[in-house]
């Protein structure tokens, strides 16, 4: 017998629904509408015949930005996953002592909880182009070079990737670590009795057991990296010239720096579409993992 409990459910859901409609659904509709207009700082809503989308296709920088985005997300994901796995295996499988392992787990999470405004200045200060920069002092000490390097100008993408990876490490490492913990101890014991080495245990037992977690984290982090531009914005702001301009950041720049709100909305829409596709994938992975 299925008795409906509407009267009880709706009061519970009302605040949630109100906030979600006002701040997700309405802005989403507005963004779609805006992307079809040439809205700028004079705030006139005027249909412009898909001109924004045409602009995206015509802009020679689009290719560069797509490439940047792919490189940025690809490198960051690969690094994050590998490092996450290494850390998770180290702190959960090899380090049996609970307090030591949780100590390191919290260390790894420090960059994640550091506010972006502080974190970015930390990097800028570290990589200061003058001979007073910390990294430059190290570099000049090691190589005996007399000329300080301008790291952010020379290797902007690498730096942005590194800075981002450090902040995303915590989440994946904790997730993997709890997944490894839930692997039954018997499996390890059986493998050891069979004479398997540590490497075989890692690759033969741990990795297959957490493969859905890996997929999940990979997709989840991809979504995050595609859409979160705050770290890049604060460290290089897309520069020098266009070298670290990624898709989400370019939407922000077009809208809030150049005041082309319509164009910015169109760029956002493209990304939202891509993200939607990834989300479908992710939900599939999640249901398989939890099955």
């Amino acid at each position: 017998m299925k008795k409906m409990q509407n009267g009880q459910a709706y009061p519970f859901l009302t605040p949630f629904m109100i906030l979600v409609s006002i701040f997700y659904i309405v802005p989403a509709i507005l963004t779609i509408a805006m992307s079809l207009t040439g809205l700028d700082s004079s705030f006139v809503w005027e249909w412009n015949n898909f001109n924004n989308y045409r602009k995206i296709l015509l802009d020679p920088n689009t290719g560069k930005i797509v490439l940047n985005t792919v490189v940025f997300v690809g490198c960051a994901i690969a690094l994050t996953i590998v490092l996450d796995l290494v850390i998770a295996v180290l702190v959960t499988y090899f380090i049996k002592n609970e307090s030591i392992s949780s100590f390191f787990k919290s260390l790894i999470m420090i960059p994640m909880i550091t506010p972006a405004v502080v974190y970015s200045v930390l990097w800028i200060w570290l990589l200061d182009a003058s001979e007073n920069g910390v990294v430059n002092q190290l570099y000049m000490g090691v190589t005996n070079s007399a000329i300080p390097l301008n790291w952010i100008a020379k290797y902007p993408m690498q730096i942005v990737v590194m800075a981002t990876v450090l902040t995303s490490l915590g989440f994946g490492a904790i997730n993997f670590s709890s997944a490894i913990k839930s692997i039954p101890e018997d499996q390890f014991k059986a493998a050891r009795i069979d004479g398997a080495g540590e490497w075989e245990i890692v690759s033969g037992i741990i990795l297959p057991n957490i493969r859905y977690h890996i997929q999940f984290i990979a997709l989840w982090e991809t979504l995050g990296l595609l859409t979160n531009y705050v770290t890049i914005m604060l460290i290089t702001d897309g520069g020098p010239s266009m070298q670290t301009e990624v898709w989400a950041l370019s939407a922000y720049h077009k809208a809030f720096t150049n005041q082309q709100y319509g164009y910015g909305a169109a760029i956002s829409m493209v990304l939202i579409f891509v993200v939607m596709v990834l989300m479908l994938l992710l939900n599939k992975v999640t249901s398989r993992r939890d099955a």
Binding site: Y10, M17, I18, S21, I22, I25, V26, I29, L30, A33, S42, F43, V44, W45, E46
Partner: peptide
């Protein structure tokens, strides 16, 4: 109730467009 929420939000949206447009025409489109 869902309709009410949507209507309210659409009204808000329309209002937004309205005031935006109004101010815009006052300000002149270029």
């Amino acid at each position: 109730s869902l309709c009410a929420v949507m209507a309210a939000s659409l009204a808000a949206c329309g209002g937004g467009a309205g005031t935006g447009g109004g101010a815009g025409t006052g300000g002149g489109a270029g």
